[in-house]
Computed example of a mutant assay.
Amino acid sequence: MIENSHINYRRIAKAIDFIKRNFKEQPHLNEIAEFVGVSPFHFQRLFSDWAGVSPKKFIQYISLEYAKTLLQEQRVSLLDVAHETGLSGTSRLHDLFISIEGMTPGEFKNGGSNLVINYSFAESPFGRIMVASTMKGICHMAFFEHSEQALLDLKKRFPNAKYFQAIDQLQQNALQIFQKDWTALTEVKLHLNGTPFQLKVWESLLKIPMGNLTTYGYIAKKINKPKASRAVGTAIGKNPVAFLIPCHRVIQASGQVGGYMWGSTRKTAIIGWESSILE
């Protein structure tokens, strides 16, 4: 069993290296499978189990990251980026960005220049919290120690957006969660930007009932990626909306609380607070 795992790992490592070197040719599944010496059907399952995504989606991620580096060069056109990335035209580049980034190539290039973000600071039972919203919903929620750094962290995501320190109804609805008034939660809307895998993980987190705890492995099984616990952990670590998307309810299989973007002590306190509410 261990020997088979080692062989499969080498196959996947070989496939990933092949994809990284040849993604501009947008290689087909059959071509990659032949390179590593297995059938296309077996390779599809093997790669998805080990990498957490299909070979096609992995190629898309590699292509997207390359396209993003090109778009950051001011004089490069969208057509040039599409061709340089190995895509047939700007429509495929557009579809790639929409499906994975949740924004168009132009919006990425402009750093969210057409986006208006309201933000405000509030007190919570677990320290100060920053909440930000677009007209579509809550896009950011984070505990913080220093307001200046909290705002800088938000602006890194959308450097060219227009920011206003103002509290709106979307933020007020979201903050009701700390007042033990759960009626307003049905009015909470989220505006999230992430890969399909990340969105799937975050959606799964929303289904964990208050007061309940689960593990990274369980989340991986729920999204039909039982061997992708590590990838699940990475996606949870990039959760942009603290508390509302309850990543604090995921712990290690050993029973240890585990890591938390805003501190393991805070995570423990939140878990205890939720349990006391149910009691």
Rank of each mutant, 00 (worst) to 15 (best):
R230F: 13
L199G: 00
F58H: 14
G112K: 09
H140I: 03
S39H: 06
F121P: 05
I98T: 11
F178K: 00
S275D: 12
F43C: 11
Y218D: 15
S204W: 02
T215N: 01
A33C: 01
G86K: 06
S63E: 07
K57Y: 06
A142D: 10
F41T: 15
V201Q: 09
H94Q: 13
F126K: 06
V232H: 10
N22T: 09
T268A: 15
N110L: 13
I117N: 03
T90S: 14
Y218M: 13
S120V: 02
L79S: 13
T183M: 03
S120F: 13
R266W: 06
Q60C: 07
E84Q: 14
D168R: 00
L199V: 08
P125G: 11
F108H: 10
L79H: 10
A15H: 03
K222P: 03
Y163T: 01
I223N: 08
W182H: 06
I223P: 04
G272K: 15
K56P: 01
E187C: 09
Q74N: 12
Q256W: 11
Q256N: 15
L213F: 07
L71Y: 01
N114V: 05
I117R: 03
E123R: 06
G237D: 04
D80H: 09
T268C: 07
R10T: 05
N22P: 01
S120I: 00
P196F: 09
G255A: 04
V250K: 03
R10Y: 07
S275A: 15
E203W: 00
A231E: 14
A142E: 13
D17W: 01
M103I: 13
K200L: 13
A33T: 03
E145D: 12
K68P: 02
K20D: 07
G106W: 10
Q176A: 13
